[in-house]
């Protein structure tokens, strides 16, 4: 099973990297880009059998390690197609 985890800074948290990137885009002439928020993306290969188990495991490692709940939130997707393709 594969899970995709997207970790992003909470909306209330200032994102210095996103700010720098949007300024760079503006300097390149892409002035229609209003804002950029940078985050982290993880692909987890999980040796579990069910989508429910994959979601539970991905949630656990995201809460415990991948995201810091003080500043970040996460959402995840479990790739059921990958399950079909591999089983």
């Amino acid at each position: 099973m594969r899970a995709r985890v997207f970790v992003t800074l909470k909306p209330s948290v200032f994102d210095p990297q996103g700010r720098t990137i949007v300024e760079a885009l503006h300097s390149l002439g892409h002035t229609e880009v209003g804002d950029v928020r940078q985050g982290k993306y993880f692909e987890l290969d999980l040796n579990v059998e069910s989508a429910a188990a994959a979601e539970a495991l991905a949630t656990e490692v995201s809460q415990q390690v991948l995201a810091n709940p003080v500043i970040e939130s996460f959402r995840l997707e479990v790739d059921s197609e990958s399950k079909a393709g591999r089983s």
Partner: peptide
């Protein structure tokens, strides 16, 4: 100490990166 919860808060990248 912040990651383990003995102190509150977290560090962001420096504002000028």
């Amino acid at each position: 100490l912040m990651e383990c919860g003995l102190l509150p808060g977290a560090m962001l990248r420096n504002r000028d990166v």
